[in-house]
Amino acid sequence: MDKKHLQTPSQTIGPFFAYGLTPTQYDYEFKSWVDNNMVADIDAPETIEISGTVFDGEGQAIDDAMVELWQDDGEHKLYGRFGTGTEENNRFIFKTIKPKSVNGQAPFINVILFMRGQLLHTYTRIYFADESSLNASDKVLNSVDAKRRNTLIAEKVGQKYSIDIHMQGQKETVFFDL
C-alpha cells in the first residue's frame, strides 16, 4: 500500500475547456458550479474587485487562459475561477474579500493558471500594494529577487485591485514551485 505510485502526468487544458469548466460564463447550457464571485456564499460587507490580463511572450493578451484563485485566512476559504475569453481586452475579473494576515504574513491569494500552450499549470500569488509594511517583512515575498517582487503585487485604485500576469519578457511574473 505504501509503495511509491507514479504521478499522473499533466496535460494542457487546451483551447476548448470553456463549455466544461466555465460554461455559464461562456453561455453554454451546462451549469458552472463555481465562477468569479467568490463571496456568493458568505456575508461580506467589504468586497474587493481584482482584475488583470494575462500576456504571452509577444505581449498579446491571452484569450484562452483559465485563472483560479484560492484564499484561506483561517476564517474564509474562498475559491474562484474565470476564463479570459469573455471580458473586454481579455481581462479576468474576480469579486472577493481581502484575506486577513495570518501569523504576521502579508495577506495574499494563490493563483493557479492554466492555458493552451501550458502542458503543466503554473502557480503564482497576488499580494496587495496597500499592505506595504507586511509585504516588506513577508518571508515568501522576501525569497523573491527584489527586482521581480512587484510582479506579485496588485495595485489599488479605489476599491479595485489590478494585476497583470506576464508569461515571459522583462515583466515576467514570478511563478512558484509549490
Binding site: R116, K139, V140, T173, F175, L178
Partner: peptide
Amino acid sequence: TIIRAPTKPLVMPKKSELSLT
C-alpha cells in the same frame, strides 16, 4: 508553449512558510 512557457526559474518558498489547503 514557445511564447507561453515561463523562461525564468520558478521560485521555491520554504515549505515551512506554506500552509497549503
